[in-house]
Design a protein around this nucleic acid. Structure first.
Lengths: 120, 120
DNA sequence: CACCAACGTTTACTCATGTAATCGATACAT
DNA sequence: ATGTATCGATTACATGAGTAAACGTTGGTG
């Protein structure tokens, strides 16, 4: 099941560290996002329904942990962008981004390194 | 204004060739998408409201052309993916994709070429 | 000139999403 | 033991998106 951008923000928190209580998730995300705790709970609930997170009872509360892995999520998103806009090919994406925004020297260096090691 | 995935499909048609009538857009996209002509018209109208396409009267019908440029759209989408998932950096994206799916030799070759020429 | 076909415009309806308040159960403090 | 604070669950509501039918207008045809 597809997870929405707002839900992904919650996932990011859980991917950084889990398990977490709803309150902890809220503590980490409420500020930047200006969400109330109710909103965070709704999002967690939707993620439960979508089986993207699992809950484990811990006394009076629950501890939540990701079920969907970050790598899988990222892969899906990247893939779909690539397919929708670049005919599934990586080179045009890189080409486009390298033109439209300056790459930092570190990025350049890392890219180079990547290409080399992929070459083996 | 943000354009939706379905709307983007219509934009793609217009980016390939324009101006086009609604019927022509439908002809090109209706099949693969299993949309009726009514649906295509709704999408065109929403794109008009969003100023992503412009219409020019041609007798009893209109000819539509893109106002939003493909490059700008692609840039926005790629940028937002990069920011959301890869902290705005290109290298991690490439790294991820190169692991999760095999790059074709041509893709590899082109990437290499890109990196080299960006290096100047 | 009356009618019909072809357009674009308006309206419709369902589902997902963002955002949040309310409800109901329950553990703890007094 | 009872009230209260605290959880999660349920309900709410507006907006956008996907999908499409109905409507109104206008130009062409018989």
């Amino acid at each position: 099941m597809k997870i929405s951008p707002a839900e992904a923000v919650v996932m990011e928190v859980l991917w950084r560290a889990s398990p977490r209580t709803a309150e902890e998730v809220f503590a980490e995300v409420g500020g930047p996002q200006r969400w109330t705790e109710a909103t965070v709970k709704t999002l967690i609930n939707r993620l439960l329904k979508k089986k993207a997170v699992a809950a484990e009872r811990d006394g009076r509360r629950y501890l939540y942990r990701p079920v969907l892995e970050r790598a899988a999520y990222i892969r899906g998103e990247s893939q779909s962008l690539l397919d929708r806009l670049f005919d599934g090919r990586l080179a045009p994406l890189v080409s486009h981004l390298s033109q439209s925004r300056a790459l930092s020297p570190e990025d350049m260096a890392e890219l180079k390194r990547l290409i080399e090691e992929m070459d083996e």
